[in-house]
């Protein structure tokens, strides 16, 4: 009868009881042929050691990374760009441009924010802006905008003189210039993103918009902070 008590082992006080019992479980699964590389710590250590030998990587850094596998993973999506993209779509859809601008595609240009450009292209490109189809253009910097065709909306990540440069370049054309800078409206933007209670909101220079023959929609005006 005693011989049948087999796998019983002496009880040890250990703070890592969970880990120890989990190891027993994994070993059992391995024994039953159910173990996967993912679940086998031994296999992971083996692969890690192999990689270390091949590439001369320090083992501690790999061990540090393996700690992450025990935690939930941070979603690295650009949250502000997701929100801004929808705002920009509403700015395009809810304002009115002069009649001569309502032919061909409706162009929205993004300067200096590749992530915002990617989200807009993915979710909003080709969607209808009135009778026009939305075309999203991306530019690395202010200088590269010069060769672009007429655009209805420009979002510029720059501030200060560079933002002013864009505002000067479009002069009095019916282009809605949008910024995200503390001095946005002073430097020629018609709409500027601001932070209010940790939220993205926007302010409007509606007088300047009127001078450019742009009619800011009531829905947009009603949500503006100033």
């Amino acid at each position: 009868m005693h011989a049948a008590s087999d796998e019983l082992s002496a009880r040890q006080a250990s703070p890592s009881f969970w880990t120890r019992e989990r190891t027993v479980l994994v070993r059992r699964k391995e024994h039953c042929g159910q173990a996967t590389w993912k679940s086998s710590g031994l296999a992971r250590c083996f692969i890690a050691a192999l990689i270390c030998c091949m590439y001369g990587i320090d083992l501690p850094s790999l061990q540090a990374q393996s700690q992450l596998t025990h935690t939930n993973t941070l979603d690295e999506s650009d949250t502000r760009s997701i929100t801004k993209a929808n705002f920009l779509f509403h700015f395009a859809a809810s304002n009115e441009w002069p009649a001569q601008c309502m032919e061909g595609p409706f162009r929205l240009a993004i300067i200096g924010n590749p992530s915002l450009h990617a989200i807009l292209s993915d979710k909003y490109a080709m969607k209808s802006i009135g009778l026009q189809s939305l075309e999203v253009l991306g530019f690395e910097d202010v200088a590269s905008l010069e060769s672009a065709p007429f655009v209805h909306v420009i979002y510029c990540e720059e501030s200060g003189a560079k933002l002013q440069q864009v505002a000067d370049a479009i002069a009095n054309a019916p282009v809605l210039l949008i910024s995200d800078a503390s001095d946005g409206l002073q430097n020629g933007a018609l709409i500027n993103f601001v932070s209010v209670n940790n939220r993205i909101r926007f302010e409007i220079n509606s007088e300047e918009a009127a001078k450019r023959d742009l009619l800011i929609g009531n829905r947009i005006l009603s949500w503006a902070v100033k």
């Binding site: 939930n72 941070l74 979603d75 999506s77 949250t79 997701i82 929100t83 993209a85 929808n86 705002f87 779509f89 509403h90 809810s94 979710k123 909003y124 969607k127 829905r219 947009i220 949500w223």
Partner: peptide
Amino acid sequence: NEGVRKLKRIDHETSMFEL
């Protein structure tokens, strides 16, 4: 991540109020 998942549901049909 739950917040990000909510944000990712935003699309062209999301109204300003919903946003």
